[in-house]
């Protein structure tokens, strides 16, 4: 069985702080990490490999330093790692990213399962999984919290807003997984040191390697553009609510409603 795991290097958003004067993100000292849910995707792949045997390829797109997440995936048990890195890929939205990832997967060759985290903590879009699935013309199972691999097919438990469903899909299939799926293992020391060596089964591909044209990928291939970024909220301005308990309650409900939060729904 062949499994592709999509991983992403992200800034640890827990460390991200805003410069109170400029309103800009302070990126200095912010650690780059493997996207947390992607570790669960990798663990799911390793679990299948442990039980049934599989060849796992970890794939990411990012700047040269994103090689670290590929090293980590290989050190944790992936058989092969591929980094898509090229200036031409820079500034991609999810459309252009899914194009590049999709083309790369086609070049990787035969596969049965693609696994990815539900979403990345820097963007929270949850779009890459379904877009890659559609690019490849294969079924998608999102929000997966449990899965079972059977002969030529997979059954998964998907979390819905108000419950869950069990769903069956044939191979090849793409799944995006939730943290509840499993407990990810740590990489090994030996694996880490090997992954940083010349002998590591890690490749770096550029746009030409996957047959992409400059207008298909990166900023030029994107359908959306960011026009402005700004800081959402300044320091807390405490607002005092006064009056009888009933009136205070009404005021508070009103205030929160103005912020887009409706209690009791």
């Amino acid at each position: 069985m062949n499994i592709v795991v999509l991983v992403k290097q992200v800034p640890n958003t827990h460390d991200v702080r805003i410069d109170p004067k400029t309103g800009n993100l302070i990126r200095e000292g912010v650690e780059s990490i493997i996207n947390p849910e992607d570790r669960h995707a990798l663990e799911a792949a390793l679990g299948i490999k442990d039980r049934l045997g599989a060849e796992i390829t970890a794939l990411t797109m990012g700047p040269p330093q994103a090689i670290e997440v590929i090293c980590e995936a290989v050190a944790t048990g992936a058989d092969r790692g591929i980094l898509l890195s090229d200036k031409a890929f820079a500034g991609a939205d999810t459309w252009a990213t899914s194009t590049a990832l999709g083309l790369a997967i086609k070049r990787i060759g035969e596969f049965d399962i693609i696994l990815a985290g539900r979403q990345a903590i820097d963007g929270d879009t949850a779009q890459i999984g379904p877009q890659v699935a559609e690019f490849l013309g294969i079924p998608q199972l999102t929000y997966v919290r449990d899965l079972e691999v059977l002969e030529g097919k997979i059954t998964a438990e998907r979390v819905l807003e108000d419950g869950c469903e069990r769903i069956e899909a044939p191979f090849p299939v793409l799944l995006t997984v939730l943290a509840a799926l499993n407990e990810p293992r740590h990489p090994t020391v030996a694996g880490m040191l090997r992954s940083a060596s010349e002998r590591a089964p890690i490749e770096v591909w550029n746009a030409a390697d996957i047959g992409a044209k400059a207008l298909d990928v990166g900023f030029l291939g994107s359908l959306t553009q960011v026009t402005r970024t700004f800081t959402p909220k300044e320091a807390r301005n405490t607002r005092h609510l006064e009056g009888s308990p009933g009136s205070v309650a009404a005021q508070l409900i009103q205030c929160l409603q103005e912020q887009g939060i409706r209690l009791g729904e």
Partner: peptide, 14 residues
């Protein structure tokens, strides 16, 4: 919101 809600981004589809 992006970056865990630390910043807001305005996006267009031209």
């Amino acid at each position: 919101p992006a970056f865990g809600g630390n910043i807001m981004a305005t996006i267009v589809s031209r």
